[in-house]
């Protein structure tokens, strides 16, 4: 039992961060796309994420919270070595989060400023998150190669988020904005593929440990479903994005694009989890070495088992309340 608790919490942490990426990813992607839209469309884009972003961002707090609660020894090392990107990300998230309200309340003369800050905050947060993921995969290394790899993931992250954001707009909007969202997705879909490919190629190159895990038989064959499912999901996205107009009007169209992106994210998460396990910091510390005391873990385990299903249930409820395409819009 004592051995299972760290495993449970590393799973819960992975789940929380995965949910964060697919949910706040669309918020941040829409923020990055904001300057490309006209004024009325900007309002619609923000209305499409307004009821959700706060809870979406909370998954990040939960992910970091579990790192802190369950793996206090790793928490300090990870966050200390990522000091600057974490600080930048936080500032980005601050600007993005407050811009929702300020852009409609701070007066018409300030609206352009807050729209720009909304965009800047979303972009800074995305880039910093990419950098953090990259640095984390290299085991928080500080060689030139590690930094290059982190920079590569930093610029890949916005491509993924733009795809998620476009897909969310396909779910929530119609008319001219729907068509623009489709155009944005067509532009971003190739850069996203290149970025994902580069990351997949570079990861075993920067880490011998990860290379050994993937390129030894029979593991390599057992792992094939991960790249294959990703490729299949990607092909479906491509097919969907270039359908004729009457096809795309189906209500499930946006959801299909979004679901395929989620599949790619699941595969990336599984791949990452396989690459790292059982380490919490690659090559330095395992989840068992980093774990908090069993009494501590047991206390939080009880709470997590009770509250997490409730949280998921009311998250689904909130999404149902706000389901469907945007209708009337009113700002004051």
């Amino acid at each position: 039992m004592a051995d299972l608790l760290p495993l449970f919490f590393v799973f819960a942490m992975g789940l929380a961060l995965f949910i964060y990426v697919i949910l706040d990813g669309y918020d941040l992607g829409i923020g990055i796309l904001l300057p490309l839209a006209d004024e009325a469309q900007k309002d619609a884009m923000i209305a499409a994420i307004g009821p959700f972003w706060d809870a979406n961002e909370t998954w990040l707090v939960l992910g970091v919270g579990i790192l802190l609660v369950a793996f206090p020894q790793a928490h300090g090392i990870v966050l200390t070595s990522l000091y600057l990107p974490v600080t930048l990300m936080l500032m980005g998230l601050i600007l993005r989060g407050v811009a929702f309200d300020f852009r409609v309340k701070a007066g018409d003369d300030k609206r352009a400023l807050w729209n720009n800050l909304f965009f800047a905050g979303s972009l800074i947060a995305s880039l910093s998150q990419g950098w953090m993921v990259g640095a984390y995969i290299t085991g928080l290394g500080n060689s030139g190669l590690s930094y290059l790899f982190a920079a590569l993931i930093a610029i890949s992250m916005p491509a993924l988020y733009i795809m998620l954001g476009s897909a969310w707009l396909l779910v929530k909007t119609q008319g001219a904005l729907f068509q623009r969202a489709q155009a944005w997705a067509r532009m971003a879909v190739l850069p996203m593929a290149i970025a994902l490919l580069l990351v997949s190629i570079a990861t075993p190159l920067v880490s011998q440990l990860i290379a050994d895990k993937w390129f030894t038989l029979p593991n390599g064959i057992g792992l094939l479903p991960i790249p294959l499912s990703s490729a299949l999901a990607y092909a479906v996205i491509l097919w969907l994005l270039f359908r004729p107009a009457d096809f795309v009007e189906h209500w499930a169209y946006g959801w299909l694009v979004y679901a395929c992106l989620v599949i790619i994210c699941i595969m990336a998460t599984l791949g990452l989890a396989y690459s790292l396990y059982p380490d919490i910091i690659l090559g330095q510390m395992t989840i068992y070495e980093a774990a908090a005391s069993p009494e501590s873990l047991a206390f939080v385990f009880v709470g997590t088992v009770i509250t997490l299903p409730l949280i998921l249930a009311y998250t689904v409820y909130v999404y149902r309340v706000f389901s469907g395409k945007l209708e009337t819009l009113n700002y004051d």
């Binding site: 909370t58 707090v61 939960l62 919270g65 579990i66 802190l68 609660v69 369950a70 206090p72 020894q73 928490h75 908090a292 005391s293 009494e295 501590s296 206390f299 939080v300 709470g303 997590t304 509250t307 997490l308 949280i311």
Partner: peptide, 15 residues
């Protein structure tokens, strides 16, 4: 102090 501070903060997030 993670054994004590962690769970209290964790419950704040969860509840």
């Amino acid at each position: 102090a993670g054994n004590i501070a962690g769970p209290l903060l964790g419950y704040e997030v969860l509840t």
